[in-house]
Simulated scan of single mutants.
Amino acid sequence: MSRPAFVRRACCAAAACWLGIAATAGPATVSVENETRPTACAEEDNVSMVLRGRGIARFRVEALQPTYLERIRVDSTAPDFSGCNFDGASHPTDPSHAFEPRRVVLHEGKDWLIVGITLPTFWRPHRVPVKVGARTEDDIHLLQVFARKPGAKPREALVLYPADGYWRLKPLPPARFGDGVYGSSVLMGPVETDGRPVVNIASIEVRTNPLAFVLRFAAGGRADVKVAEISEARTALDVWLRPPTRSERPFAVLRSMYVAADNADVAEVSWRATPSSPPQRRDLPSVARLEAAQLRFGRSVPSRHNTSAPDIRFSGFETDSGPRPKETLR
């Protein structure tokens, strides 16, 4: 259930104060373009839902439990390469750059465990400095965030790939689903194309109290990403873009997979044209372009692939109608 408007406004104002941002903003809508291409491969990101909007300074991204969660009897999480021209190795069109593999614990606290992974190969050669506390590493391909609870093992809820800017997030799964499973990915920032959509990040700073990421982009500007919630209901990120967006370049892209309605990580789009409009819904293939104040990418038919993978919702789009944000996160 969504929170009342006055609670949302209070939370936004508090978060803006935490980031040193003047809390002067107005609600906004964004355009969404469907650049999905057909595929028979359930392990290929063929879905691209591209978000554009002029002057967007803030928005929220959430991973939510699928609406059919209670109806899941078997959670199908195994890879399915039956319709693919590769079998679990790198995609045949990807470059391959070699690295010395390693795993390093970057932070271990009461609430969070943050781990950095260097993969033996990655499709991009980019090295992005990642700072956590006093420590900086420049060869991390995968940042993992685990939520910690007393008496329970840490559970992963969020990952970020510094070298291409892909985020994946999921709510904490019910106990019967073990570690749960990711589905769609999200790009946030100045999106470019390099064989596929990417965000080129120049550096990342991770703050642990409260948990937040400061991303500085190679194209200029930055994003402050605060982890607002990690729970069994949702994993939520509040995002501030500095400077606000320009309409000609996407500021976010949802990347996912669609083969059929029952074999997809996202199969439909739900949206509100304005914050007070009634919700609308269409099957993914029937969407070309739309204007929305809120978007949810999900499934209402249980999928035989990544059955428990979350829906992804974008909301809270706001324009910056006040002075330039104060630079308090450095």
Rank of each mutant, 00 (worst) to 15 (best):
I140Q: 12
A163E: 05
V159H: 10
L142V: 12
R196V: 04
G189D: 02
E108I: 00
A175K: 10
H107D: 03
H107Y: 11
R127E: 06
G195I: 00
G116I: 09
P171V: 11
V159Y: 10
G183T: 01
I114D: 10
K110H: 13
S184R: 01
A163Y: 03
N200Q: 09
P190M: 04
G178Q: 01
L113T: 12
V181S: 11
R168N: 13
A134I: 08
L106V: 03
L158E: 05
G183C: 03
R127Y: 01
V130D: 04
V206E: 06
K131I: 00
R124I: 02
L142H: 12
D194P: 01
T121H: 12
L160P: 02
G183Q: 02
E137D: 13
G195L: 00
S185Q: 10
V132S: 04
T121E: 15
F122D: 14
M188H: 07
L169R: 05
R127I: 00
Q144E: 15
R155Q: 15
P174K: 12
G178T: 01
K170I: 07
W123N: 13
D194E: 15
R168L: 15
Y182E: 09
A163K: 09
V130W: 02
G133S: 07
G195Y: 03
I117L: 14
G165E: 04
E192H: 05
L160A: 10
R176G: 04
E156C: 12
V199C: 01
